[in-house]
Amino acid sequence: MIALTQTLILGVLAGAVYALMASGLTLIFGVMRVINIAHGAFAVLAAFLTYSLWSAFGLDPLLAIPFIMVVMFGIGWVVYQGAVRHSRGSHVSMTVLVTFGIALVLEGVMGIIWGNRSASIRTDYTDASVEVGPFFFPQVQLLAAAIAVVVLIALYFLLNKTWLGRAIRAASVNESGALLVGVSVAAVAALTFAIGIATLGAGGAMLGAIQPIVPGTHYQWIARLLAIIVLGGFGSLPGAVIGAMIIGVTEMLATTYVGSAWPVAVPFLIIFIVLIVRPQGIMGARLREDLVS
């Protein structure tokens, strides 16, 4: 029972960070119908940037978050304008290829800049825990989960209470309608992409604090993030949070009770099964081109 509770604690804490990282992916899909396969690579990039700030200036990874978010916002904007935008007219599977290409380029760039060795950030709280009775809460995970909640709430507020949020939602529901009421869909798309990458940046910074980073791990991340939004429903923010919790807890349960090899398969199995059995996920709509039958 103690082991089970401990596993659930770890799963939920991991899930919070997953949720933050997946929020950008689902937002970008919701507005643009672009599945950003490079999302995992952007996360690792943010982690490496955090690592550099920490190793060069001793900047605490959590304090670096605002700065990383700004930088990632800029990078997201540039990548969108430079590459993603040009593929929007073509078939959805083509945009998948473009973002997959971006992921490979990012992996290569990170390898060149930071090398292919693993980099890890160690601060006084990264290896410590808060102990409550028989349970332990890793400090860094607690902090990361708290920050994830804060950023997610901010994102929710941005989307639901501001003009920009209304414009984004308008563009996601009806592109020509949004144009009609004076929303520049092109600008909103670029902004959404950049915002999605910026929130991911916050998650990436914490990723750097939680575990060692290697450029090649982005496949694992994109698999996990895709599984989350497939499960939660493409384009749904609450769905992403629920999906993230499910994935986080399932991975931990699989490690403890099935075997530590299984977490690798969990995201792929979920993608495979959900897309076949219930393509709309828990809370989302089906992709338009799924509506064949």
Binding site: A14, F136, P138, Q211
Partner: peptide, 14 residues
């Protein structure tokens, strides 16, 4: 555990 394992918290807990 597979090469992709980065977080050992649950393994260590077990």
């Amino acid at each position: 555990y597979p090469a992709t394992t980065k977080n050992f918290d649950s393994i260590v807990a077990a």
